[in-house]
Structure formats: C-alpha cells, structure tokens
Design a protein around this nucleic acid. Sequence first.
RNA 1: GGGCCUGUAACUCAGUGGUAGAGUAUCUGCCUUUUAAGCAGAGAGCCGAUGGUUCGAAUCCAUCCAGGCUCGCCA
Length: 499
Amino acid sequence: MHSDNEMLRMRREKLDTLADMNISAYPARSARTHTIDNLLANEDAYIAGEERVIIAGRLNSKRRMGKAGFANLRDAGGVIQLFIRKNDVGNDAYELFKLLDLGDFVQAEGTCFHTRTGEYSVKVEKLVLLSKSLRMLPTVKEQVLEDGTVKRFDEFADIELRYRKRYLDLLLNPERRRTFEVRAQFISAIRRFLDERGFLEVETPVLQSLYGGANARPFVTHHHTLDTDFFLRIATELYLKRLVIGGIERVYEMGKNFRNEGMDRTHNPEFTLLEVYQAYADYNDIMELTEEMIRMAAQAIFGEERLTFQGEVIELAGPWRRASMLELIQEHAGYDASHFDADRLRAFYKQHELEPPAHAGPGKLIEELFAHFCEPKLVQPTFVTDFPREVSPLAKRREDDDRFVERFELYIAGYECANAFSELNDPIDQRTRLEAQAALRDLGDLEANVVDEDFLEAMEYGMPPTGGLGIGIDRMVMLFTDNVSIKEVILFPQMKREG
RNA sequence: GGGCCUGUAACUCAGUGGUAGAGUAUCUGCCUUUUAAGCAGAGAGCCGAUGGUUCGAAUCCAUCCAGGCUCGCCA
C-alpha cells in the first residue's frame, strides 16, 4: 500500500525509527563550511588539497549498492555527488543513509576526489540529517549528454502545478530561478538609474477613498473601524502629482497596482507599475529618459544593448524610432485618419469587418485602429506619439493642434511597455476633462475616471510643467526573460480557487 | 464571455463500451566507484466532479470545476 497517504505514513514511521536511533530529524543547527558552487569552481584545488569540507543541501538522487552508495546533493549554487561507504562512515551513519529519502536535507563532511569514472565527488566521512522530508517530491531524473546539455526525464511540467506550487517549480526546474533573478536585476537597475539622476522614491497609499490615474475598474475593500469602503489603487499618478505640486521635482514609485479586469497572458490582477514624474520636463525629455533607462538595464543584465525575444533580436541601441499614431495607421493600414470624422472612421471599420467600440468618438476610433493594425507590427522599439486628446484625460494638449495631446507609448515586440505624457497642469482644463470622463461613466463606462476634487484642489495651487512616465514592470520582465506569459514572471500569479 | 484542446498512480504518459496499464518514483531482497546504476519481486488509482444512456462507462451524452491556446474585453 503506497498511496499518497501511505507514503506520508511510511515517512512518519521513519521519524520513529530515527528517534530510536537517537537521531534528531530537525536539528537546530548546521555547520556548513563550503557551498557547492565553491567546490565546483575550485575542483583542482580541493582535490589536491585534500581539505575537509562540510556541505549541506537537499538530497536529489540516491543510488545505493549494498555497503556503499552515491547520492546527489543540491544547494542554491549547484549539485555535487556524494560517495558513501559503510567502511568510511560507520554502521550508524550508513543506516541513516539507507533511511534517507529524496528531498531530505543533509550535511556531509569529507574530502573531494574523482570517482573511477572521473566524476568529481565528495567522499563522505560524516553524515548528518538536517531536515526530514515527509512528502515525496515529484521524480525528475537528469542525464548529462556528451555535449554538456542536460536531458530531463519526467520533467515537472504541468503548468498549473508549476504556478500553484512554485516552490516545486523552482526546486525541480532550477533554471526557472533565472527569470526571477533577471526580474530583480531589472528592478534594481531601474532604481539605480533613477536614484543617480536625483529622483526620490516614495510610497503613496494603496488604499484610497477615490481611485484614478488610469482607466480601469478597481477592487473594493472595507475598513471596519471607519465603516468605509476603500479602493485598491489602479495607479499612483494622482498622488505622485500631488508631490510634484509639493515641490518634489523628481519623484517615482514602483509598486503594486490592482485592476479588477480580465486575466490573460499579459494581465494579472495585481501587477507592478513604475511611475516617474519630472518637473520642467516634457514628453520629449521623457522619451530620452525611457530610452536610456531601458538600454542601461539591458547593459546591466546582458552586457549588451540588445535582447532576443521569441527568436527576434530586439536592437536597443538608439535612437529609437518615433512615429505618430496617424503616421503608423497610414503605414500599416494604408488609411489616412487625419480627417477625424467619426462617420468616415466607422465606414472604414465596416469595410474591414471590424466592430467599432461603443460610445466612441473619433479619437477612440483612431486609437482602436492603431491597436488593431499597428501594435503587433511594432517589434523594434518604437515611440508612438500624438494620441487623440479624447483618450488621454490627463495629458497636455498640443499647442499646434488640440485634437492631440503630448503623449507617447513605447512598443517593443508588439507589447506596450511604457506610457508617458506632458502632464496636464491646467486645473480648469483638468476639471473639464475629468467631468467628461464622469459623463462617460454615467453612460455606463465602468472604467472611466471619477472626479477627484482633492486632486483638483491641489492642482489649483499650481503645478509646474511636468513630464510623467508609466512602465509595466512585469511586461518589461517578460521581454527581458523571453516569456510570453505574465504568469511566468510573477512568482505566485493569481489563480482561480481549486474547485 | 465565445471557439478549440486538456484533466487516468507521486511525476511523464498509453488506454475510445467488456476485470485499470507502462516507465520513473516507492517498498522488499542482492550488490563497496555508480550515474536516467543494475537484477529479481511487490504494492500503489473514486480515470477532475455530478448526473444520465447502457446488462456493463476512464471511454458515449449533459452540466459543472480547473488549466492551456485563441478571439473579444482590458493603458
């Protein structure tokens, strides 16, 4: 009887056996002197020096033959083989070795040597149990092929299990850790870049009594003492602008935002967003900042200004292309939308058998055309400029043509990576635009902005001309790690409750 | 939300109406330089869930749950 429950029972019985042998299954201390990557990196020295080493880690595989055996031990830095002979370790330790299961943490003391077949190993003289594993790890065997690549058998590959039990994913697919290392490196490169340029990192409220700064439905939660509902922020924008008004000329926040929308390959309900504001800058300055920042991150992580995504080489060396939305629609749809006539735009939709969005004016219709015809084509980094004012309630209008605003989005590999504008700082215009959004809301657009009187009041005190930027960190990490699913770059992505 | 696909042992998967299978893992025995160790044997499953059709269902039908791809929605 070796069902799942029986497995657990058998391992619990081993705990009793260990107790009878006076062996603690969960000792408080270990005495590691060397990490495995250290041993691997200095093979010749350890073999020649016959130095005693104490390593610790998780038992990865075990091959026992009568009165001797081999096992693989893994710690954070690598795997090394242990060789254990009854003659060397004594009867009790060898009995312990026989009781060990895959997944147990052990400490091994001994010297390094080469086996008969030439494998670099530790000849164990002392073996200590550090922590007993009660649950059987999935079986993954590896074979190192002649060309050095590792062939894996019965890989732990079930996507759902990998996300729900990420610890097993990291343990059984150790190369997965690289994704999260790159994520950390990317974030720290961005911080370094902004800090060096005098930007102040701040933290603003996650719980807000009004939400704004983006078009999205919020999560709602309840504060019991105040008996009030709060919204989880959908953007940090309105608070960061208050700080610019308060005299912090360069400010940024990198943090979780929450949007109550659909989940798919590129959307997780909670995601990490960077927002940056720079007083006395406009969207052209922000384009330069963005370009330098991303290029610098690539340099820090890859040592070169390019990356490969889904087989496409993305060239990050500048300057990146800048093209207006209308220009790109002309280029990819062969259509001149500069007339801004909603009826003619709808006719073009019909001609291409596309459904125009509800409640849409010409600006929205143009933006949707862009999304449909152009976004997937923008593989190399491209700043898309001159968005219709109608779809940009927080951006400053262009002085030469007020149908447009001073705004850009950055596209790389068909993904929207950044959104930025010369921020609106005219409080009267801002009120008009927020009220227009509120009107859309009354028409049933649940993602339209609400009017934030406190924010408007702050702006009435005066806000300098300011350039602002938002970057979806998760999507950038997808690019940098060659992943097409946001779930691969978030350690614990949102999943439905198991039914 | 629509379409397509998937769900069988701890892992990876066969099995399309007639007694639930394989390899690995596990357990027992042998084996003191193995390496996807080997040899011999054993155990292990509510076939995602619930209903239905049938003498009989992992298999056919319906509904539901979970996941993937895709379309729509979505800064």
